[in-house]
């Protein structure tokens, strides 16, 4: 068990033969992910990294029974790729691409929802189920098998936190980087639901950041629905108001979206909130030992 992806996920890569697509598809295959093929319009009938290339997702699904897609196409074409995947019946769509216009993401997300598929991202590191499947761009070696589910708005901070969990003698069931854009596919709540049901996951780590109110909504949800222990860190306590901190969504607007506001809401919901990003690993172990 795990969530969203596992050994039997049949993965295609959209943007397969491009520079990014090639590099990361290779890494995913090396990790053991069941990559069954890829899509690059105009390069159908070729073979790339030992896998078939298709012109369209439709052909790819027909030939390979793919159920999961990793999207690594340029921003101007990425929403189109997401919509194509959902239209062709792909159930888990992971969009790595950074810089997609918000208007396009809004429409693509609505379409994905209508087709009962799951979108992760855009602008995210993807999903990894330790020792089973990596559908993303994270360094696989950091994520040792274990029982901690990880949900994060960030990239490298996810690796840092996963590493701390491992150094604390624990490991990861599934880790998902949800992305730091203003509009994203799967939200923290969507993934909390899945982790709560997953028998392999014993505790959940949430890594949030300033901007928006997703963590506050998650806090309300946790209070009513989550029985597993949750540990959280919110990045950006020192961020000034009105300044975008790298991620398009990481901006404090007026008095809303501050780290303190989120920490308070989570703590009130019974979540173990850590102030220092260096304390995640230790705290997770403490919570599990209780």
């Amino acid at each position: 068990m795990s969530i969203l992806v596992n050994k039997s996920s049949r993965v295609i890569v959209q943007g397969f033969t491009g520079k990014e697509g090639t590099f990361h598809a290779e890494q995913c295959i090396a990790y053991g992910t069941n990559v069954v093929g890829g899509v690059t319009p105009g390069k159908g009938d070729q073979t790339h990294l030992g896998r078939p290339v298709f012109n369209t997702v439709k052909e790819a699904v027909k030939a390979t029974d793919a159920d999961t897609s990793l999207i690594l196409v340029p921003p101007a074409f990425a929403a189109d790729a997401v919509i194509e995947a959902a239209a062709m019946g792909i159930k888990v769509i992971v969009c790595i691409t950074e810089g997609i216009p918000t208007r396009d993401v809004i429409v693509a997300k609505k379409f994905v929802d209508k087709h009962n598929a799951t979108l992760v991202g855009p602008n995210c590191p993807g999903i990894i189920t330790a020792d089973e499947a990596k559908v993303g761009i994270m360094p696989g070696f950091v994520f040792k098998k274990g029982t901690i589910g990880l949900i994060s708005k960030s990239g490298t901070l996810t690796y840092e936190m996963a590493n701390q969990v491992v150094l604390a003698g624990l490991g990861i069931s599934t880790a998902i980087g949800i992305g730091g854009d203003p509009i994203i596919g799967s939200t923290i709540i969507d993934l909390l639901k899945l982790f709560e049901k997953d028998i392999e996951t014993e505790a959940i780590v949430i890594i949030g950041e300033i901007g928006g109110d997703m963590e506050i909504q998650a806090a309300e949800y946790i209070k009513e629905n989550i029985t597993k222990p949750v540990v959280a860190f919110i990045a950006g306590s020192t961020a000034p108001k009105g300044k975008r901190m790298g991620h398009a969504g990481a901006i404090i607007a007026g008095s809303k979206g501050t780290a303190q506001e989120k920490k308070n809401a989570l703590a009130k919901a019974g979540v173990t909130v850590v102030d220092s990003p260096a304390d995640i690993g230790v705290k997770v172990r403490e919570v599990l030992n209780k």
Partner: peptide
């Protein structure tokens, strides 16, 4: 100087702490 926005924000936070 940090790689990644989330880690960069966290680095600022821990310096302050």
């Amino acid at each position: 100087m940090v790689n990644g926005a989330g880690l960069a924000m966290s680095t600022m936070d821990i310096i302050k702490l």
